[in-house]
Design a protein around this nucleic acid. Sequence first.
DNA 1: AAAAGAAAAGTGGTCTGACCACTTTTTATA
DNA 2: TATAAAAAGTGGTCAGACCACTTTTCTTTT
Lengths: 215, 215
Amino acid sequence: MDKKQENKKVFLEIVKQLRALIKDEGIQPGEKLPSERVLSERLNVGRSSVREALRSLELLGLIETRHGGGTFLSSGQSHQLVEILASFILQENKSIDDVHTTRRMHEKEAIRVICSNRSLRSLPVWESLFMKLELEDGIIRDLLLRELIIASGNRLALKIWIQLAAYSAVPLKKYSTKEEKPMLQMLLKSMQLGYEEEALRAYENWIRYINNSSS
Amino acid sequence: MDKKQENKKVFLEIVKQLRALIKDEGIQPGEKLPSERVLSERLNVGRSSVREALRSLELLGLIETRHGGGTFLSSGQSHQLVEILASFILQENKSIDDVHTTRRMHEKEAIRVICSNRSLRSLPVWESLFMKLELEDGIIRDLLLRELIIASGNRLALKIWIQLAAYSAVPLKKYSTKEEKPMLQMLLKSMQLGYEEEALRAYENWIRYINNSSS
DNA sequence: AAAAGAAAAGTGGTCTGACCACTTTTTATA
DNA sequence: TATAAAAAGTGGTCAGACCACTTTTCTTTT
C-alpha cells in the first residue's frame, strides 16, 4: 500500500540534465548554451521536450532567449517570475502593499545587519555614496538600497529583493531630490557609526517622504 | 533611440491567456482545465505552444498534471519551485545559511509587527498556543512560527516563508521539548503585552537553543 | 586590400501529424 | 446487477516542416 510513488516526471529529468550539462561544460552566466537541436541530440530527446524544459527555465529567469541568436545563461535579474507571481499568486488588491512591505522589511533588516557589524559599517561604499550625495544633485534611490542589501551579505535576500524591487519600482522620480539629502546623509552616517535606531528612523523618514511625494 | 523594446514573447502571451481563461471560466483550485487539444483550438495556437506554457506553470507549481487524466489547477503550495531554486540559484554552500537567515528575518519581522499592533497582540490564537504548551508535551515548532507569519498579515511574506521553511526544515525534533517551554511562553506573553524587545530576545534564545540542540 | 553588400548557415518560434501510455467513460457480456 | 472488455479522452514524446531573425561566410564593388 505504501507505494513510493516514484516521481517520474521526465520533463523534470531534462531540466536536471540541462543543469548537469551546464555545470560539466562550465558555462558561465551570460554565455551561450548549445542550440535546441544540439541539446535534443545530445540528451536523446525530441526538440519539443527540450523546449518545454527551456521555456520553464526562462519563466524562472534562469536563461534568456534571443530569436535567431541562441539561448544564454541568465546573468542579471529577471522579472518574468515576479510578473507571473503578480498575475497568478498575488491576485488580490492587498498584494501590492505586501510586495512593498516585504521589500521594506528586507531593507530594514539590511540596515540592522550592517549597523551591528563593524566591518560592514566601515565599508568604503558608504563614504562613496555620502560624497556622491554631496557633489551630485541626486542619486538613484534603488541604487543605494541595493548596496545595503548587497552589503548585508545575504545573497538569497538580494535575489528576493531584486524581484520585489522590480515589481514595486516607481516609474517617476527615480532620483533623490534635494529634500531627501539630509535624510540620506543621516541614514548613512548613523549606519557608519552603528547607531541602529537612528539609522532606522532616518530610513523610515525617507520612505515616508518618498511615499508622500509620489502620491 | 529610446525604443520601447516591445516585449513580444508570444509564449508569455499564452500564459496570460491561460490565466484569463481560468478566471473567465471560474475554474477553482483543484478543478480540471480544458485539455491541451481544446486549449490549442480555443487559443488558436499549436498544441506544442500550449504545452510549453503549461510546463512552465507546472514548474512554478501553479498547475498539476496527471498522465491520461488531465491538467488541474493546483490546490496547495508546491515544492517544485523551491527545488529548482535549490539546485540552480542556491549552488554555493553559504546559500543554506542564507535561506536560514532570510527565514528568521521573516519571523522576527512578524514578531515586530504583531507587537506593535494592539489587535494583533490580542488574537485568541496566542492564548490558545499558550494553553497548548501548558497541557501537551510539545508543539510543532513550525506551526507556531507559521501562525506568527499569518498573523502579521503579509500574504506574500507567508508565501516566501513557506518556501523557505520547506527548504530549511529540520528532519528530526519537529516538536518542541520541555526546555523550550519557558522560552516559548516568554515569547508569547511578551508579544501579547507588546514588549517587542523582550519578545525578540525570547525568540533569539529559542532559535539559538534549537540550533545548538540539532547540531 | 578594404569596405559594403549579398548569400548561406545557424537558431529560435510555431504548427501539424503521428504514435504511445495511461485514465476515464461507455458499452457489451455474463 | 456486476464484471469485463472496448472505446474515447488525455497527457507524453517525437519527427518533420516552415517561418523569422541573427550570425557568419562569401562575393562584389570600390
